[in-house]
């Protein structure tokens, strides 16, 4: 890849608009994570949640698309994320990437994803080759 990164460079993108239960169910099947809280609404409600909610790994995957698009194919070497808030059906998520540090051949990025109310749902960091 040919991009040159500078500390403070930033990118922002809506990574999912109006997340549907169908998409969450598709992720359950594609990832093999069949925890009922992520697809079985009566179970989720019985456990005190307003509805099913997205897998943390789905939020991480959604946010990661911006990363791979920015750093290029096979540039990503590390990606860590903390699931700060739950993601619900109907949510629209916006991810922001910011270059934190640039070293010889490597770049560190901060990852931050918020919902439509501005509440942070994921905070992460990543390292990529450059």
């Amino acid at each position: 890849m040919t991009a040159v990164f500078h500390v403070g460079d930033s990118w922002e993108r809506v990574v999912v608009h109006d997340l549907t239960r169908t998409q969450i169910v598709m992720y359950a099947g594609a990832s093999g994570d069949f925890h009922p809280l992520h697809h079985d609404e009566p179970t989720a409600v019985a456990l005190g949640y307003p509805s099913i909610f997205a897998h943390g790994m789905l939020t991480m995957g959604l946010s990661g698309q911006l990363l791979t698009d920015v750093v290029g194919d096979e540039g990503l070497t590390r990606y860590a994320a903390r699931m700060v808030g739950q993601v619900w059906p109907g949510d629209t998520l916006t991810t922001t990437l910011t270059v934190d540090a640039v070293r010889a051949g490597e770049v560190d990025l901060a990852v931050r994803t918020v919902n439509q109310d501005g509440a942070v749902v994921l905070l992460g960091s990543a390292t990529a080759r450059q």
Partner: peptide
């Protein structure tokens, strides 16, 4: 399985589904 995953993520990067695009990207 890859195609199902990129559908679930809504990821449009062609290297995950298109052999020619993947080869063009060096894979």
């Amino acid at each position: 399985m890859i195609r199902h995953m990129v559908e679930a993520l809504g990821d449009a990067n062609p290297v995950y589904v298109d052999e020619a695009a993947a080869k063009a990207a060096g894979f």
